[in-house]
Simulated assay, not measured.
Amino acid sequence: MTAPNELRLLPWSGPDGKSCYLSTDGRGGYMSRLADNIEAVQLCSAAELLEQAHGILDEQDATLEDKQRLAKELTEALRNVLRVATSRGHLLAVSEQREPAY
């Protein structure tokens, strides 16, 4: 089991909206692989949404409702991307702490 400061932030939140963490000895377990796959889907979805956003914002006939829906979807995508970045940044910091200094 990992130390509390080495918990992995998972790419989803609990039913009450709080962050979920995984305590594991390695990255090869089922939950770690599931989290990796979900992170990849979230990043891909955010990239696709960004492309759609360019089209909607450039479109002269885009309605206020279209732009509000876009803002909501972009907000959710940004939340997911920030969670992935936070998780991966923490994992990098932990792995750097484990590597011996030369």
Rank of each mutant, 00 (worst) to 15 (best):
A93Q: 14
C20V: 09
L64D: 14
L7Y: 13
L50R: 14
R98W: 12
E99D: 15
S23Q: 10
R88C: 04
R88A: 11
E6F: 07
L74V: 03
S95N: 10
A77F: 01
T63Y: 05
P11V: 03
D25M: 08
L57W: 01
L50E: 09
E99Y: 11
I38H: 07
P11I: 08
T75S: 14
A71I: 12
A3S: 14
L50K: 04
Q60L: 13
K67T: 01
P11R: 13
L64H: 01
D66F: 11
N80Y: 07
P4H: 01
E6R: 09
Q42I: 12
D25T: 14
G89F: 07
E48R: 01
E73T: 08
W12P: 01
L50S: 14
V41W: 12
L82P: 04
T2A: 13
N37W: 09
A47Q: 02
I38F: 11
A40W: 06
V41N: 06
L22M: 07
D58C: 05
V81D: 04
R27T: 15
I56M: 04
L43F: 00
Q68C: 09
R98D: 02
Q42P: 05
L92K: 04
I56G: 09
S19R: 15
H90V: 08
N5V: 05
D36Q: 11
V41T: 15
C20G: 02
L43T: 02
R33L: 05
L78M: 12
Y21K: 12
E59C: 05
P4F: 03
Q52V: 08
L70W: 03
A40H: 01
S13G: 12
L57G: 02
E39P: 04
A46C: 00
L91E: 12
G26K: 12
G89V: 10
G89I: 04
Q97P: 02
L50D: 04
M31Q: 14
C20L: 13
R8A: 14
A35K: 02
E73H: 09
P100I: 11
C44A: 14
P15W: 15
L74P: 06
A93R: 07
W12G: 02
A93S: 12
G89C: 05
P15D: 14
Q52S: 03
C44K: 08
T86N: 03
S23I: 08
M31H: 10
E99L: 07
A93L: 13
A53P: 02
C20Y: 06
L92A: 06
Q52Y: 04
A77L: 01
M31A: 10
G14V: 03
T24Y: 11
I56K: 00
V41Y: 11
S32W: 00
R8G: 00
P11F: 03
A35H: 05
L74Q: 12
S95M: 13
Q97V: 12
R88Q: 15
A85Q: 14
W12I: 00
T63L: 11
K67S: 08
L7P: 08
L64I: 10
